[in-house]
């Protein structure tokens, strides 16, 4: 299985190359920002159950939280720079928090470049400003559509500081996808499904994993369908 850091590195190089090409130069050598090693166990955010999100959601875990995994300085991997469009009027926040100062209101249709994600927040560049918007208020698009100027792409690439995602998808051509006809023609592979079944986890193993990584089961009600 090819390493995703290879894909991420390729995508980062491609993005920077696109920017450089736009600026009149292109090179196939090492990118300006070498890819970093894969992120370590990401820091846990402070418990926000039932309360308002805290300022500085990336702060260390609360004291006395002995069951949470050891925090590290690494965060969830960033996205590679990608163009996007604002779906509904939204606030550009200075930090990824509802309590953070609002830098601007972005109307629906605003073009942004997304560079990073933290939970339900997306770090974006718009019109030279950098800030955070709600992940669900933006729709990302393939590179080359919508998007911003070459300068914006460049500044976002700098922000990404080479951590642009372990795990990003690179568009390629020439790979043939699964086809319906292929699926229809398939006959069951008894050996392979038996192998699959052999890997099943027991409830005990699942519980142990959750305990080890500080995953506490929470009571969350089902969401009703939104009114049209």
């Amino acid at each position: 299985m090819s390493a995703s850091s290879g894909i991420a590195a390729t995508f980062l190089r491609a993005s920077l190359c696109a920017v450089a090409a736009a600026l009149g130069a292109c090179s196939d050598e090492q990118p300006a920002h070498p890819p970093t090693p894969r992120a370590e166990a990401p820091a846990t955010a402070p418990e926000t159950q039932g309360g308002a999100p805290q300022d500085g959601a990336r702060a260390a875990r609360p004291p006395g939280d002995a069951t949470a995994p050891t925090p590290s300085t690494a965060r969830e991997p960033a996205l590679a720079p990608a163009p996007g469009t604002v779906l509904r009027e939204t606030e550009l926040k200075r930090e990824p928090s509802f309590d953070a100062p609002t830098l601007a209101r972005l109307p629906a249709g605003t073009r942004v470049i997304a560079a990073d994600r933290e939970g339900g927040w997306l770090r974006v560049i718009n019109d030279g400003r950098e800030g955070w918007v709600r992940l669900l208020h933006v729709s990302l698009q393939p590179p080359g559509t919508g998007g911003g100027s070459a300068q914006e792409l460049e500044s976002v690439a700098k922000l990404a500081t080479g951590r642009a995602g372990t795990g990003n998808i690179v568009s390629t051509t020439g790979i043939r996808g699964l086809r319906e006809e292929q699926l229809r023609a398939a006959a069951p592979n008894e050996g392979e499904v038996a192998r699959l079944e052999g890997y099943a986890a027991t409830p005990e193993a699942a519980n142990a994993y959750a305990r080890k990584h500080g995953l506490a089961r929470r009571d969350v009600a089902e969401l009703p369908a939104p009114k049209r």
């Binding site: 846990t44 955010a45 926000t48 999100p53 969830e76 939970g119 339900g120 669900l136 795990g167």
Partner: peptide, 25 residues
């Protein structure tokens, strides 16, 4: 869009960026 309409801001209290183990590579 549908998820946004359904979740609204109410789900932000469940947000725990980084919670869980390390993704197996």
């Amino acid at each position: 869009r549908r998820l946004d309409a359904a979740m609204g801001n109410a789900f932000d209290k469940y947000d725990r960026p980084g919670a869980g183990g390390k993704l197996y590579r």
